[in-house]
Structure formats: structure tokens, C-alpha cells
């Protein structure tokens, strides 16, 4: 641990092995999508085939969960965008009583294990006699997505500074013009990044969802059922690749959108 620029060999080795540990397992998902063996996880695969992509495409039980997941993710990230931005705007405006309580309240749904959020909602639905629907799923997802948008927006608001908004008012803009011409363009990329991360988070969520979905099936719930009771295992891999891409690509995009700022998207998950 001396000041030389070259790290000790053991440290480099530990860091590289650690990163490989984080990344290599995912590759197997891709490999197993091409195996000809569909009754076990035999390694190495006896032979390779691309037929499972076609099989997956024609499996009627995959499409409704996919649609439901897309719908829930779209509505939830939309709601989270509105709520998270409003919250960040209020917090950026003033130091007011209860600020710390509110920031705790925003973080809590993601800081506490999903099972607590899920079981809480389940208890509330039971007490209030609310039947399961798309909206019960959305209720949970939007709640834990707010913090993602909030974290992205609040960092950008901080960078925007008060004087920019004052300058706009000073030059004759009313509050709405300031929002449209100054706040929105400067917040845009942060909101887009936050929205995409929220989408990814919602699309992939399974723990809270199992408590709020009832008999409905989102794509992750479909996958979970396949994991517990497998049939045509490579098809599950094909779906896993789809789910992986649907979360991976927004994250990468969000990273590039906010890279220039000191606060990079994603630190808050």
C-alpha cells in the first residue's frame, strides 16, 4: 500500500477475479439458450441449436406476461417520473420542516427488503378488500421507483443552482416559462435516465410483485414459475435473455446520459 502507481499483484488479482465473478455467470444464460438438452442443465451442452428462439416465439403463454410487464413498467415509471420530479423540485426550493423525514420516506421503499413492501401492500389490500389487478402491481412498483427518479433529478437540480432560475425570472419569465425553457431542458437527460432506470427496475421486479399480483403473471413471475417447475428449459433462457436486455440496455443508456455530471445514474439502487 505504498505510494507507487503500480498496485500490488495480489490486489490486482483479487480485483480482476472479483469482477469476473460478477460477470461470467451471466454468459451461461446465453450459452444454455442454444443447448439441445432441455431436461437438465447438463454441461457441456451435448449440441447447439437455435430452434428455442422459434419455440419461445410460438409459446402462447409467454406473450401475456410480457405485455403485462411492459404495461406495468410503463405506467409505473411514468408515475414515478411525475412524483419523483415534483419531490426533487420541492426539496431543491427550500429548507423546510420535515425535509429529512421526506427524504427518508422516499428512500425507505427501496432500502427495506422488498418482502416488507410486498407484505405491507398485501396486508393493506386484505384490510381494505382491494382485489388484485394491474393497478395493485403498479401501486407497489411506482412506490419504489420514485426514489430512482428522485435521486437523478435532485442531483441535477443542485447543479442547476438558484441563480439560473432567478436569472430567468429577472428577464421577465413567469414560473411556467422558467419551467419550460430553463428547468426542463436542463433536467431532461437526468429525467430520461431516471425514467429508464425506473422502467428497468419495474420490468424486472419479482419480490414485491408476487405479493401484489394475485393470479396475474408478469414476465419475471412466469420465469420464477419455470425455475420452480421447469419445462423446455432453454426457452426460459431465451426469455431470460430478453429480460436481461430489457434491463441492461436502459442502464447503459442512462449511464451515458448522465456520465458528464458528477452524479452518475444508478448509485441509488
Amino acid at each position: 500500500m505504498h505510494s507507487e502507481a503500480r498496485p500490488p499483484l495480489a490486489l490486482t488479482l483479487g480485483a480482476v477475479l472479483g469482477l469476473l465473478f460478477l460477470h461470467l455467470p451471466i454468459l451461461l444464460i446465453f450459452l444454455y439458450a442454444f443447448t439441445t438438452e432441455d431436461r437438465s442443465y447438463q454441461f457441456p451442452p451435448p449440441d447447439l441449436t437455435t430452434k428455442w428462439f422459434g419455440v419461445a416465439w410460438n409459446r402462447a403463454d409467454i406473450w401475456p406476461p410480457l405485455y403485462l410487464s411492459l404495461r406495468v413498467a410503463a405506467i409505473s415509471s411514468g408515475l414515478a417520473l411525475v412524483l419523483g420530479t415534483l419531490c426533487a423540485a420541492a426539496m431543491a426550493r427550500a429548507r423546510f420542516f420535515g425535509r429529512d423525514t421526506i427524504s427518508l420516506l422516499v428512500v425507505l421503499p427501496i432500502a427495506l427488503p422488498g418482502i416488507i413492501t410486498g407484505m405491507s401492500l398485501r396486508s393493506a389490500f386484505a384490510i381494505a378488500d382491494i382485489p388484485f389487478s394491474t393497478w395493485t402491481i403498479v401501486l407497489g412498483h411506482a412506490t419504489f421507483c420514485v426514489v430512482i427518479v428522485y435521486n437523478n433529478a435532485v442531483a441535477r437540480f443542485r447543479r442547476l443552482g438558484a441563480s439560473m432560475l432567478e436569472a430567468s425570472a429577472d428577464l421577465g419569465a413567469n414560473s411556467f416559462q422558467t419551467f419550460r425553457h430553463v428547468i426542463l431542458p436542463n433536467l431532461g437527460s437526468a429525467l430520461l435516465a431516471g425514467g429508464m432506470l425506473a422502467f428497468a427496475l419495474s420490468f424486472d421486479e419479482v419480490i414485491v410483485t408476487t405479493f401484489t399480483a394475485g393470479q396475474q403473471s408478469t414476465l419475471p413471475i412466469w420465469m420464477l414459475n419455470e425455475l420452480v417447475r421447469p419445462r423446455q428449459r432453454p426457452v426460459t433462457n431465451v426469455v431470460a435473455i430478453v429480460v436481461f436486455s430489457a434491463t441492461f440496455l436502459p442502464i447503459l443508456a442512462a449511464y451515458y446520459l448522465t456520465r458528464s455530471g458528477e452524479e452518475t445514474a444508478g448509485g441509488g439502487k
Binding site: G161, M164, N186
Partner: peptide, 9 residues
């Protein structure tokens, strides 16, 4: 106003 930090957009 001319702001101290200029506050250009």
C-alpha cells in the same frame, strides 16, 4: 440583473 456567477443558461 448581472449575476455574480453570470447565471448564463
Amino acid at each position: 440583473t448581472v449575476f455574480q456567477d453570470y447565471a448564463l443558461f
